[in-house]
């Protein structure tokens, strides 16, 4: 029989080798998957996407900006542009590069997968917001057309991604860009966040860390060259203008109620108290949001905290005569008005 100490040592070695291969993020398999990103097809698709983005936003697109976005040297970017032109996806005019009809439809296909995937992650999974973009960058190059359509069908053919960007249809339709920068609001003006730019990633992470999300109501308090001070759903937020510029807003409709004071979440209700539901945060998405509304949590609903679980969370609320348990993380996203 093998000596137990030796057997344990052998086991340790095998476990270490397995870890080397399969650990998430730092394992060899994960590295290999990331390395595939550098492939030619990926570069072509990323370049098309970038050029489309420039045209959509009406900004000028250069070899340098492509090199910067794709993280490749400028000469390689120039080479790539030539290749795209040869493939008939690009035409070079006097004022920079333009997508041909083919190039545009190719770009839209890639963008469709990207945004659908982000929407899927946001609505249906527990993947955090900061990882959506990176995951979609992988998915957009790997999903087949059939897989994409199946995904779209599964999540109800959404028209907008979680950042507020429109998702192109299968036939390549996309509505024109609407909305304006948060910076264009004057003091005291109300608006709704319609889009949060998800690139660069660090900026997006800072914005999400502030609790900002699409659908939030904002009111400009003051802005100058150093900082922008505004209320988001009633809470004050201060951002550098450069960051604030990544938020796009649209005017509010007349019917919507203006939020003037900080919103109080359902978690502030103690057992025995009751209140009216004011709104459900747009950060609560997908299936969870629909389920909650099915159970009767809609603006105006009277809600009463009945009891807390023996372990402290969840809490059971009486909603339209039924007793419904809500986890704290979800109750925090329901805003109430105590009478």
């Amino acid at each position: 029989m093998i000596d137990p100490a030796k057997a344990l040592m052998l086991f340790g070695i095998i476990a270490a080798v397995a870890a080397l291969f399969f650990l998430p993020k730092i394992g060899l398999v994960a590295r290999w998957k990331r390395a595939r990103r550098g492939m030619q097809r990926v570069l072509i698709e990323d370049a098309l996407k970038h050029i489309f983005d420039c045209e959509y936003k009406n900004i000028h697109c250069t070899t340098e900006s492509i090199a910067g976005t794709l993280l490749i040297p400028t000469d390689q970017a120039a080479e790539l542009l030539t290749r795209l032109a040869v493939m008939g996806l690009l035409s070079t005019g006097d004022n920079g590069v333009h997508l041909t009809a083919d190039g545009r439809s190719y770009a839209l296909r890639v963008i469709r997968v990207h945004r659908l995937w982000e929407r899927y992650l946001a609505d249906e999974t527990s993947v955090p917001a900061t990882e959506w973009h990176a995951s979609a960058e992988l998915a957009e190059h790997t999903l087949t057309a059939a897989q994409t359509e199946a995904l779209a069908a599964q999540i109800g053919n959404p028209h907008f991604d979680p950042h507020g960007d429109p998702i192109p249809t299968t036939s390549g339709e996309i509505p024109p860009k609407v909305g304006r920068s948060l910076l264009s609001l004057h003091s005291g003006e109300f608006a709704v966040v319609t889009h949060i730019e998800d690139e660069p990633e660090t900026v997006f992470a800072q914005l999400t860390a502030q609790g900002l999300h699409v659908g939030m109501q904002v009111m400009m308090i003051e802005r100058n060259n150093d900082r922008v001070r505004f209320a988001a759903n009633g809470e004050e937020i201060v951002l550098a203008p450069l960051l604030a510029n990544n938020l796009t807003v649209a005017p509010m409709t007349e019917e919507e109620q203006r939020i003037t004071a900080p919103l109080s979440p359902l978690t502030t209700l103690s057992v025995g108290q009751e209140a009216h539901v004011l709104s459900i945060s747009k950060a609560m998405r997908g299936h969870q949001r629909r389920r909650l509304m099915d159970l009767g949590v809609v603006p105006g609903t009277m809600i009463r905290a009945e009891m807390t679980s023996a372990s402290g969370d969840p809490t059971a609320y009486s909603i339209r005569g039924a007793l419904v348990a809500l986890r704290r993380q979800h109750a925090e996203m329901i805003y109430i008005k105590k009478d």
Partner: peptide, 19 residues
């Protein structure tokens, strides 16, 4: 499972306490 292979699966919580 929930932190690795099943991270990307759909998730929601609802629980009604019947009378």
């Amino acid at each position: 499972l929930s932190n690795t292979v099943l991270k990307g699966e759909a998730s929601a919580f609802s629980l009604e306490l019947p009378p």
